[in-house]
Design a protein around this nucleic acid. Structure first.
Length: 424
RNA sequence: AGAGAGGUGGCCGAGUGGUCGAAGGCGCACGCCUGGAAAGUGUGUAUACGGCAACGUAUCGAGGGUUCGAAUCCCUUCCUCUCUGCCA
């Protein structure tokens, strides 16, 4: 959520930013925000005056009762009654203006960073980096869902029986490889200074609002009606919400966490060949990194996260590229997002396996996550996160790219974690 | 899930209808004291919104109510603790 005073003081900048996202009706909504804000402030001034008068009267009434001047007190009581009615009306309209303002602010996405190009869809994303060589596979190379069946390491039908499509069952060496990846990622992250943390997999409504999943995108999350909880779509939600409402010290920065969680996504509206196998699931595993940073340091931190993820992909020896998402493809809450894609050779396509974003103070404003700055004032912090990494597509790429006549070789760095070096 | 107790500032804790944004302590900051430190001592120390500012308003888990006036009384709700039940 953008801050109202920021919009008030930087209207053109906001409009230019929204234009990069191809955000419809930007000018209308921004004007509505400014009007609601002005109404809110005006109303608050009159309400404050009425309440101040009320408070004054109450004190006088008390004094008159004490000194036994009942008549005077009764007179003032009448006056106070009238004031009370007025202030009640005003506080109702103040609430209405505040709600209206809040509702409008929830509709406005984050303003893209200067380096983010305008664009509508993934076709407009910019490739900014590429590394690794694409392996040459034999004639009879198989896509990962065939390999999974051939070596009996992932059973999609069984998952369908137990839960539904998009809930695979990992078996034997497949399950072991999953666990190896989780451990390897967590070890890499903790070595890079991130503190490992285990968090709830269900969150309340306030948490969903804090990181930006609510009120808009309920449809993407599984909801447990009985208890009004949401299954997390990513560890970003519980981890970032650790800091909801917090006032941290400047000396606490950088705050860095890593956590493994399963992620649950309804993926309403997804269909077609691209969702085959591990490409798109309702439940998948992911290791996430989250940072809370001083605003002056957040872009340096983002760069560090990108380098860290590069290092992991290099170790796994997977060919990958990095995209800077265009305005239209950048998520609602992010100011900038770098997507990492690995090449899945047998499918002959790139798969997104990580996304690293700087939210600047957009989430922090929703979370009310602040720090005391050098002047002793509280200021919104910056939040960032990235996947390091999302498991299924890494697994898909490993299965496909490392397949040989004899079986699937295990990337060297994972062998100690797996306890075997080939799946056959 | 049932019964009882409770939720007050960064922390502990007093406060049962009026001058209470809230005593006292701890912690923290700055000063004095000291060769330096500890101890001692003095002062300061919540957040949000509005206002150029002086300042005003709101906030004692949250929401509503009673009252001229609520941290204090009433209702609802969330959370914590103890006991009972159930259970990995």
């Amino acid at each position: 959520m953008l801050q109202v005073h920021f919009i008030r003081e930087n209207k053109q900048r906001v409009l230019d930013g929204l234009a990069k996202r191809n955000f419809a009706n930007a000018e209308t909504i921004v004007d509505q925000v400014l009007t609601a804000d002005e109404n809110r402030r005006k109303t608050q001034v009159s309400l404050d005056e009425a309440l101040a008068e009320s408070n004054k009267l109450s004190k006088e009434i008390g004094a008159f009762f004490k000194s036994g001047e009942k008549q005077k007190a009764i007179l003032l009581k009448e006056k106070s009654g009238q004031l009370k009615e007025q202030s009640k009306e005003m506080s109702v309209s103040l609430q209405a203006f505040s709600d209206e303002l809040q509702g409008l602010l929830y509709l406005i996405p984050n303003i893209p960073h200067a380096s983010v190009k305008a664009g509508n869809s993934e076709a407009d994303n910019e490739e900014i980096y590429k590394e690794g060589s694409i392996p040459v596979l034999g004639e009879n190379a198989l896509p990962h869902w065939e390999l999974a069946k051939k070596y009996d390491i992932i059973d999609f039908e069984l998952g369908t029986k137990i839960a539904g499509a998009g809930f695979p069952v990992y078996k034997g060496k497949g399950a072991r490889l999953q666990r190896a990846l989780i451990n390897y990622f967590l070890d890499k992250n903790t070595k890079a200074g991130y503190t490992e943390i285990q968090v709830p997999h269900l969150v309340n409504e306030a948490s969903g609002i804090g990181t930006g999943q609510l009120p808009d995108k309920e449809g993407q999350m599984y909801h447990v009606g009985e208890d009004d909880l949401y299954l997390i779509p990513t560890a970003e939600v519980p981890i970032t919400n650790i800091f909801r409402g917090n006032l941290v010290q400047e000396s606490d920065f950088p705050i860095t966490y890593t956590g493994y969680t399963p992620c649950f996504r309804r993926e309403a509206g997804s269909y077609g060949a691209h969702v085959r196998g591990l490409n798109r699931l309702h439940q998948f595993d992911k290791v996430e990194i989250v940072r809370v940073e001083h605003p002056e340091n957040s872009y340096k931190a983002l760069n560090g996260m990108v380098e860290h993820i590069k290092d992991i992909l290099r170790e796994l020896k997977l060919p990958y590229k990095i995209l800077r998402l265009c305005g239209g493809d950048t998520g609602f809450t992010a100011a900038i997002t770098f997507d990492f894609e690995v090449f899945s050779t047998a499918q002959d396509r790139w798969l997104e396996i990580s996304s690293a974003s700087n939210f600047e103070n957009f989430q922090a404003n929703r979370l009310k996550l602040r720090f005391k700055n050098k002047e002793g004032k509280s200021e919104l912090a910056h939040t960032l996160n990235g996947s390091s990494l999302a498991l299924p597509r890494v697994l898909a790429a490993i299965l496909e790219n490392y397949q040989t006549e004899d079986g699937i070789q295990i990337p060297e760095v994972l062998i100690p974690y797996c306890g075997f070096d080939i799946i056959n």
